[in-house]
Design a protein around this nucleic acid. Structure first.
Lengths: 346, 346
DNA sequence: CCCCGCCAGGAAAACGATATACCTACGGCG
DNA sequence: CGCCGTAGGTATATCGTTTTCCTGGCGGGG
């Protein structure tokens, strides 16, 4: 019908009409199904080009095929997203791989409560908005895996799952290397007492890093102080810093769960009249570009966030397409030594 | 057909069967179309609840109704997104309004070239993936408006369009206030010569801020130095800073197009042995949380980015729903004085 | 008492693409 | 010379909603 309707976008039948073939022929051509002779194929392709046609995502999705979109749900309160670029960097890596294969990224940021998150995943799945999701921030006793399995929604986790789980995960090799190197670095500088301002305890990586830290500290004769904080805010970092600096036997070095917190920590120390790195050494985590710009330039545990994002995206797309994943190597975490660490004064 | 098919998610006809009504009745109920008596209505709602049914986004979209997703295309190279949180903050504001009304945000980050961007919008529209888009980074001679009009895709711009245009735009009141206050502040401190490291010239706001700066400078007897840079990178900021500091008659204060650049500038000055704010006053732009954490704490032109994002989202959703927009007030830009500005030394 | 209009609700036609079943030549082979 | 397989297509059912007529009953006005 209406092969040449001037309004609206062209449909597959407009293309068919222009090429002088049937709708199904066009479908076969654009989906490389074979069974179409070369000259016909060319005519169809020309028509497609001329009409600037592309299949309606809705129709394709309805028919049961792919949506060509993947989802991501973040449970962070929106304003936290603001201050910690961690998440953004991941997204940037993900998009880098998604864009070339014409996949879209559907982002959902839900407020704090757990229920909103579950609802978001459920909608994503039930409304068939996305073909799969990328998970971040692996939690201890994470319920998302079960949820997603129940929903039949393919997923890839960035990080380490809290237990063996069928959800494929991407992570850097030699995970422990970053924090270990940081401890070695501090020990070599002559520190004897170091604190670690950890992220919330429900994060899998918090526990992991804590163990690595404790172990490395023991090996190098450093006495560790552990300071878990309830969230990743600058305020939490500042007060944890305050606390550790009021200790009778105060640490001469502090590691932080991320760079923003480290910078907040440096500030807190300054407010107490301490100078970094002379009076206190500080080590961040993530190696965001920002770290190289502040004063003193931040010593930090570098993490290949972009690589992680890319790997996750590739992995998921491969999973969806049934093809084998050709995942680029993710750089192992490693210490980036700059200026915020030094031998303890006195 | 298969009213009770055990596999797969429930469809509207499953609901209809369970409630003992026709599919159209169900549709009318869930879309509040009226014409359904109260008891029937309740039965339908119960069935919906029992089956945990939600309409298939694909089918709804195909039928021509809403997709309940809005799109955003960023032309920034992915690594720039990383270092400048500006964009992230906007997204955070947008999501804050989108989430409650169950709209999704489809993000597309395309590499530098113009063509990829146009293609991205075209796909978004033609494949009916989104109901509308939010535009940022208004350009001089921006071609996106024409493109979108051609595609029939509703849009809202964050910022000022380069000319009168039917695309609705959201922007803060008293736009000029921020830069004006910055200049006044510097003049009051006794500065006589100030530079402005501007963003790329093709940005509408670059030209606007330049004019505001020049005018305010003239009014306050400040001699202005203008330094446009090709992009928003820290490197560009650093080299523009170098350049301006090598001037015979070097400025005693520099304004930057954003906070990251300002911080990079502070660093560049330091490398030349200059101390901020003693030897050079620095003013940033955007007032990201970061600015309060660096040393010296950054004096900056605050901008209500979250408010802008929220307003844009609300405006677009209203536009799509045909309802009137109840847009929250956006705070006017204003100077946030911290520690990176002082009276010029000597 | 009859007819008209209205209201609750139903049947069915889109929407655009894909997959499957089905045609139709044509050539090869028995 | 007839039968069959196959390349090259075409016709059509289908996905899950929304929406546009319809219809049957019922109440009220003349």
């Amino acid at each position: 019908m209406g092969a040449g309707r001037s309004g609206g976008r062209p449909t597959i039948s407009d293309v068919a009409a222009l090429a002088g073939v049937s709708v199904s022929a066009v479908s076969k051509v654009v989906n490389n199904k074979g069974g179409i002779a070369e000259p016909t194929r060319r005519r169809v392709l020309e028509a497609v080009d001329k009409l600037q046609w592309s299949p309606s995502a809705a129709a394709v999705a309805l028919r049961g095929a792919r949506t060509r979109a993947i989802g991501m749900v973040s449970r962070r309160p929106p304003d936290l997203l603001t201050s910690d670029p961690h998440f953004t960097v991941l997204i940037s890596g993900i998009e880098r791989e998604l864009a070339p294969v014409d996949y879209g990224l559907l982002l959902h940021i839900v407020g704090g409560q757990d229920d909103a998150e579950r609802r978001a995943y459920r909608r994503l799945a039930e409304e068939r908005r996305v073909d799969g999701v990328i998970l971040t921030e692996s939690l201890v006793r994470d319920t998302r895996f079960d949820l997603l399995r129940g929903l039949g929604l393919p997923a890839v986790l960035i990080g380490t799952p809290w237990r063996e789980d069928p959800v494929p995960a991407v992570r850097a090799p030699h995970q422990e290397r970053g924090v270990t190197e940081a401890v070695e670095h501090l020990a070599a500088l002559g520190h004897r007492r170091a604190a670690y301002v950890l992220g919330p305890e429900d994060r899998v990586h918090t526990g992991f890093r804590r163990r690595v830290f404790e172990e490395a500290a023991r090996r190098h004769g450093l006495s560790p102080v552990l300071l878990p904080v309830p969230d990743f805010t600058a305020e939490a970092a500042a007060s944890a810093t305050e606390e550790s600096l009021s200790l009778a036997d105060r640490p001469t070095a502090i590691l932080y769960a991320n760079d923003m917190m480290a910078i907040a920590g440096i500030n807190a120390a300054r407010r107490r009249g301490l100078e970094v790195p002379r009076d206190l050494s500080v080590v961040g985590h993530d190696d965001l570009p920002l770290g190289a710009l502040v004063q003193p330039r931040l010593t930090t545990v570098g993490q290949d966030l972009v690589g992680l994002g890319r790997a996750a995206a590739l992995r998921l797309v491969a999973e969806l397409g049934g093809t084998a994943a050709e995942v680029p190597a993710i750089a192992p975490p490693g210490l980036v030594v700059r200026e915020s660490t030094a031998a303890p004064g006195t």
